[in-house]
Write a protein that binds this DNA or RNA. Structure first.
Lengths: 299, 299
DNA sequence: TTTCTTAATTCTCACTTTGAGTACATTTTC
DNA sequence: GAAAATGTACTCAAAGTGAGAATTAAGAAA
């Protein structure tokens, strides 16, 4: 028995926002996330994945961050055959691609991520699925107090506010309740598109990470074109977070962070008053831009 | 050539706070973090590590979280021999152990983490090392504007505030500047204790993660005994963050979150007025307790 | 031209959260 | 009993946030 030997695979959640909708790169007609073996000639995991993605997709990847390493035994039921001894380990990455670089984003590999998680898009209204979802979850809960509290908390019911960050927890609750892949494949509508293995869970991990990250780190700009209006920026953040934002307050928040500057040009193509164009300030020191959560420090 | 085959190793940053000092579990007289091969009989990475840690250390691990997966080629220069083909992949975990369970915390495996990062402890004063550290960093920077900005930002110089979260970035800057392992082993004092390979970097990753996490997730309580006073809690947070906290404001912040409740008992062993004892409320729903960063949501 | 529509941009104001410090209470130690 | 040490409760100004009104600038319709 070879201890510690495993098949290592890299798997990417590649995100772009086009037409105000967040999209994710898929393979097999939307059935899986792109992945490949970790080849040992690469210098590091990160650079290995970058090279591999760029050769596969032709899209330059601006931002790349490790998500999570998945290694549960029962993840991929079909993975038994790979050698008998060695386990499968998948290292997930989150990558961001600029709209302008994602040309061909209409090509079928790019799928709107709300196709997979329809209950996560609260931009215009509470998604309709939530009604049936609540019903089925509560049916599963069978009156168990803790389960009910968890449902209410995660899905913003019963006076609790919807928290957009809890994508993964919501998916995992649904998984526990038997409302994911097998259930959907039995023909139920509205609970999202399925993926192979645990790819949808990895996607949920990526969405959750990105939603949390945009709040304290200026990664949104990795998804924006060089020049953009404040409304375009707002629409992008809305697309990612799945929430409608308050325009004046959004613009106040952005401008006081001093992360962007006017280009001097105006956008002309739209209806209504033309908007100023902005660009991300690239004279910002690396990590400078974090809205830190504060402890009550003394002195 | 076997593609995708790798040696997988689990590596743990196990933290406990005793005597108001954060400590980390080590092996080899403080030279390395505990680690071991990922054995394929485990159900998942997480459970594998938990079993392994608890059998090795006899400490129950309350909280366990994946940190990062390290796989750079040049990480461990000595790891060439392991088989010629397969790469080494290390999956790092952060684990928290309660003070009461870390009895024997005086045993030499538990080391104060500021032994490894003396410049990170700002509880009583700016650490003295910072003077020499600045000097050496600026000497390395050689006037390069970007490098200087980065130094000032990371080390809170030149009007910038010290940010306790940037542990990893600071370590990596020092690494770039050649102020880590080899440098220290050449006999320089005050730049911290070294570890084998990149273990000190993994420790920095763990500290950084924990410092960030305590601000929006109630993980501190995983380090506290069942009953504690508010000052004990404050001292623990101070120990982890390396900052002195404002007592009245800290207690206000804690009490309005309603995460703890009075036990009704009082602490008796200390000098001065006895303090109320509190316990963590275990009727809190799992994730309920997060101080979320807000976007300017509309409606 | 005038008016309507759409969107950009600026301001206001109440309310909440923080930073910082003060005052007072209750115990042990000298 | 006074001093020292700690616990606990307030106060108050400054900063930050949520919600919305008001104003400006363009094209389109009447």
């Amino acid at each position: 028995m070879v201890n510690g030997l495993a098949h290592a695979e890299l798997i990417a959640v590649l995100v772009a926002v086009t037409d105000n909708d967040p999209r994710v790169m898929t393979v097999n007609a939307g059935d899986a996330l792109p992945s490949g073996p970790f080849e040992s000639e690469h210098r590091s995991l990160q650079s290995g994945l970058r090279v591999w993605i760029e050769s596969q997709t032709k899209h330059p990847v601006g931002y790349l961050e490790q998500l999570y390493t998945f290694g549960d035994r029962d993840r991929t039921p079909s993975a038994e055959g790979v050698g008998g001894q060695a386990r499968q380990i998948s290292i997930g990455y989150l990558g961001l691609v600029r709209e302008q670089d994602a040309l061909g984003a209409d090509r079928p590999q790019w799928r709107g991520w709300y196709d997979y998680f329809p209950w996560e898009d609260h931009r215009t209204a509470r998604p309709e699925v939530l009604g049936e979802l609540y019903a089925r979850l509560h049916h599963w809960a069978q009156g168990d107090e803790l389960r009910c509290q968890r449902i209410n908390f995660l899905f913003g019911q019963n006076g609790m506010a919807w928290n957009e960050d809890l994508v993964l927890q919501r998916y995992e609750l649904m998984f526990e309740a038997g409302l994911t892949e097998n259930f959907i494949q039995s023909g139920v509508q509205g609970f999202g598109r399925v993926m192979t293995g645990d790819h949808r869970r990895i996607l949920a991990t990526g969405i959750a990470r990105l939603r949390a990250k945009i709040k304290y780190h200026p990664v949104v700009f990795e998804l924006m074109p060089d020049c953009f209006t404040l409304l375009q920026l707002q629409r992008t953040v809305e697309a990612l977070s799945g929430l409608p934002l308050h325009k004046p307050n959004f613009r106040r928040q952005i401008s006081q962070q001093e992360l962007i500057e006017e280009t001097g040009e105006m956008s002309g193509d739209m209806r209504g008053r033309p908007a100023k164009l902005f660009r991300y300030r690239n004279d910002i020191v690396e990590a400078r831009a974090l809205t830190s959560v504060r402890l009550p420090v003394s002195r």
